[in-house]
Design a protein around this nucleic acid. Structure first.
Lengths: 210, 210
DNA sequence: GATACATTACTGACCGGTCAGTTATTTAAT
DNA sequence: ATTAAATAACTGACCGGTCAGTAATGTATC
């Protein structure tokens, strides 16, 4: 790995991405506060001083991780809701399955737990996340629910009242995966969990049998 | 509060409770790792050295907080499920409302977020919590669901597959309250949230209209 | 009930270790 | 030779846990 003739190379273009990748992995593994910048730098193959050439603080590094990892996923979801054909129940199913594909089996999914875990201790990060991620995510899901109401497939309700409730089992599963999953507590396999979750939720949302 | 003539008093009996009370408040406010033992001692009106006369480590102090605050609540829930009369849907409603009364508007509720937040960094605490709290809680809710299946009120399903899913919106609301709630994101009032949650969930659990 | 002696709850300074951020210096690249 | 990328040594603040000493309390003696 180490070139025997040069101790290091100048790689101005590649460094930021390598640093955010390393930061994501370590933030997810240990949390924001508990992750050491020395460690992030080491994992990216540079020194801590180099990190400060590209990011002005730990906080800015974290924001860069979120911008790079999460915002593109929100954009994908928005186009999906805007363009997907078929009934709302199928749209819901697609969103759930795709959500888990994208964040369930992916390091970036760990960011959600991190935010809930440390929001209180880092208000500026929370404010950033609330504006950039939460508001957009809520609008996305509310729009999908509204489509089901408009088509008569779902019973009438206020989508804004239900977004958090409906989304909770997905978010909770993700949080669990990044926290207590290690500790030997028995949990249902993911495919069963998602299947039962979709079933329970659609039963709860659908218009009563006439 | 401070007696002008004596710098301190010997109060061997009162100290442990005062220390666990102070610890709970600060653990919930700042998290486990971020809470300083100096601060806990100060809030309890003693010095850090005194804290170590009653608890052998930060970890043991935390376990004492959980034992004192959470285990009695689980016992109450178990007797409720075992003895409550009436249909399962009413039992479910009672559990939800009582749950929120007891942990929703109470410092002890903050422990749940703390655990999810820091489980990975403190495996021994996670192991303790998994054994003493999670396993008992899951059995409690599964028993309540089973009663609805047995009575024919709920459709047939495997209660163990659904406990996490069904409980998620409650836990998620509690986590939210202790993390992002501060940060100006609009949320539905609690009474609306609980009403809609109970409605959605019971619609999802009930036997199909014949 | 006053005094001396014994006990122990409690204090607060201290230590080893940690970590975000800074700066003087070295080295690759042109 | 110059410049910019990268390093590594450094700073100052912080914190869990320790311990020698102190002050409040209990008790024996007169």
């Amino acid at each position: 790995m180490v070139c025997p003739v040069t101790r290091w190379r100048r790689r101005k273009e590649a460094r930021p991405q390598e640093l955010t990748d390393a930061a994501l992995a370590l933030f997810v593994e240990k949390g924001y506060a508990a992750t050491r910048l020395d460690e992030i730098a080491a994992q990216a193959g540079v020194s801590k001083g180099t990190l400060y050439l590209y990011f002005s603080s730990k906080e800015e590094l974290f924001k860069a991780v979120v911008r790079e990892g999460l915002l593109p996923l929100l954009a994908e979801g928005e186009t999906l809701v805007a363009n997907a054909p078929g009934p709302a129940s199928e749209l819901f199913r697609t969103i759930v399955v795709r959500w888990w594909e994208v964040v369930g089996d992916n390091p970036i999914g760990g960011i959600f737990k991190l935010i809930f875990a440390e929001a209180r201790n880092f208000p500026e990060i929370s404010r950033f996340y609330a504006e950039e991620v939460i508001d957009r995510g809520k609008r996305l899901l509310a729009a999908a629910l509204q489509r089901g109401i408009d088509s008569g497939e779902f019973r009438p309700f206020n989508p804004d009242d239900l977004v958090h409730i409906v989304f909770s089992p997905l978010m909770m599963r993700l949080i669990w995966k990044h926290s207590l999953d290690c500790c030997g507590v028995h949990t249902v396999p993911t495919d069963v969990y998602l299947r039962e979750y979709i079933d329970l939720t659609l039963r709860g949302l659908r218009r009563d049998a006439a």
